[in-house]
Computed example of a mutant assay.
Amino acid sequence: MPENSSRSVTGPTRVPALLPTGYRLLEEPPTSEEYVQLRRESGLSPRTPAQASGALSASWAWTTVRTAEGVLAAMGRVIGDGTWYFHLADIATDPSHQRRGLGRVVMEQLIARIDDVAPPQPYITLLADPPGQSLYRSLGFVDSDPSLGMRLPR
């Protein structure tokens, strides 16, 4: 997708977000160092370089937003099987670049990539921390009732 352009990700009813001037949208992962740093700076749980390596190599898709100078401003990725199950993860925006719609652009790009390849009715999930819940709801995400997201603490 060219810089500063957009397209609908689920049809004509959704108005796509525009990438602000001065940013580039890329379908590539951040570096390991950038991944670890942006998770930390954006308030996500910290991860090690070894964990970053696995995330970078084993994800189904990545979208990043960089400044004109090449600085990582936002990121997101999809984990999944490429056919029916897709989990959005690591949606993060550097605090100095927040409130500009970058998270929305990342989300819409990832959803569009899923829609481009998946058969009808893919199962798209995410875990929504409080700061992102209004964004996710505005994109059509709903609570997974009666299912409940669970994890095994380690």
Rank of each mutant, 00 (worst) to 15 (best):
M1K: 07
M1S: 11
P2L: 04
S6Y: 12
S6E: 08
S6I: 07
S6K: 14
S8V: 07
S8N: 03
V9G: 06
T10V: 15
T10A: 08
P12G: 06
T13R: 12
T13Q: 14
R14Y: 06
V15L: 10
V15Q: 10
P16V: 04
P16R: 02
A17F: 12
L19F: 08
L19R: 01
L19D: 02
L19K: 00
P20C: 11
P20G: 03
T21G: 10
T21V: 04
G22D: 15
Y23T: 13
Y23H: 14
R24K: 05
L25G: 12
L25T: 03
L26D: 05
L26T: 11
E27R: 10
E28W: 05
E28L: 00
P30F: 05
T31Y: 10
T31R: 00
S32N: 02
E33M: 14
E33I: 07
E34D: 01
Y35L: 13
Y35A: 05
V36C: 14
V36M: 15
V36N: 05
Q37N: 12
R39Q: 06
R39S: 01
E41S: 15
G43K: 08
G43H: 07
S45G: 12
P46R: 08
P46V: 06
P46D: 09
T48M: 14
A52G: 11
S59I: 04
S59Y: 10
S59A: 02
A61P: 03
A61C: 09
W62Q: 02
W62I: 04
W62K: 01
W62E: 10
T64A: 14
T64C: 09
V65P: 08
G70R: 07
G70M: 09
L72Y: 03
L72S: 05
M75N: 00
G76N: 02
G76F: 10
V78I: 04
I79S: 02
D81W: 12
G82S: 13
G82I: 02
W84Q: 08
W84Y: 13
Y85I: 10
Y85V: 13
Y85C: 14
Y85H: 08
F86A: 01
F86C: 04
H87V: 01
H87E: 10
L88D: 00
A89D: 05
A89E: 10
I91W: 00
P95I: 06
S96V: 12
H97D: 02
R99M: 14
R100H: 13
G101F: 13
G101R: 00
L102Q: 02
L102R: 01
G103D: 00
V105I: 02
V105G: 08
V106W: 00
V106S: 03
M107C: 06
I114N: 00
I114S: 00
I114M: 09
D116P: 11
A118V: 05
P119H: 09
P119M: 06
P120S: 12
P120T: 03
P120R: 11
Y123T: 14
I124E: 07
T125Q: 03
L126G: 04
L127M: 08
A128I: 07
D129I: 04
D129C: 04
G132A: 01
S134P: 07
R137Q: 09
R137N: 04
S138A: 05
L139A: 07
V142A: 12
D143I: 03
D145H: 08
D145Y: 01
P146C: 11
P146Q: 01
G149V: 02
R151N: 07
L152D: 02
P153I: 00
R154D: 09
R154N: 09
